[in-house]
Amino acid sequence: MADDDDALIRVRAVRKRFGSREVLKGIDLTVRRGEVAVLLGPSGSGKSTLLRCINHLETVDGGRIEVGGHLVGYSPKKGKLYEMTPRQVADQRRTIGMVFQRFNLFPHMTALDNITAAPLAVLRQPKRDARARAMQLLDRVGLADWAGHYPAQLSGGQQQRVAIARALAMDPEVMLFDEPTSALDPELVGEVLAVMRELARSGMTMVVVTHEMNFAAEVADQITFMDDGAVVERGTPDEVLTRPRNARTREFLQRVL
């Protein structure tokens, strides 16, 4: 996990504060192409904030975040980083997909229209192509028969699968998952994790904030354990989950397992 050249995501010394509280205290993270990185940690440890910084939904106070070799949200000038305009950031976000805890599907659009909205508006794809691709993605997440349904007519698990298809429709290089199963009823968690598992197998680069330990153990290439805005421990699932070196990691794992 050195500073290797095939890193797709490179986070270096990222600092962020909300008011007087420092929520990220100089975070490093490197994710190579095709890797699945899982962020673990107690609530308030800063893992969701870090994830939101990667596609500039949150600004940072210092440090640098690169995706695919490009600085995200800032351009360098005379030793400082200047924040980009919203339009420039929008262009960068095309290659970074995100799935939210609360799905955030567009309630006034059908499942199909949710998926085609950005390809039509942002990529200017022809309507026929966008719809064909959307149907393909709905099939991939097992919802081909639900294309015409509105989000309110779908279960939480179905909504989250549509949300994953919606992000995939932009053909992102990276997918960010912010606690994608935390708002789901227990019996619906499995269907969403199955889609994510399939996505990981297909070679998608993923950064996942989750509390699903079995998923992390099975799918992750690397696990980063954060606490109080800092990285406490990182390594393979085996290293972090079964042989944790740090006392705080051990304490956290005891509580969640």
């Binding site: 939904l57 950031v89 929008a90 932009m170």
Partner: peptide, 22 residues
């Protein structure tokens, strides 16, 4: 909901498009 705006931004929509479409 502010999540609607974030979802649109995360898909690469500009602020203007997010406002008019979402």
């Amino acid at each position: 909901d502010s999540g609607q705006r974030e979802a649109a931004y995360s898909l690469g929509m500009s602020p203007l498009r997010t406002f008019s479409k979402i």
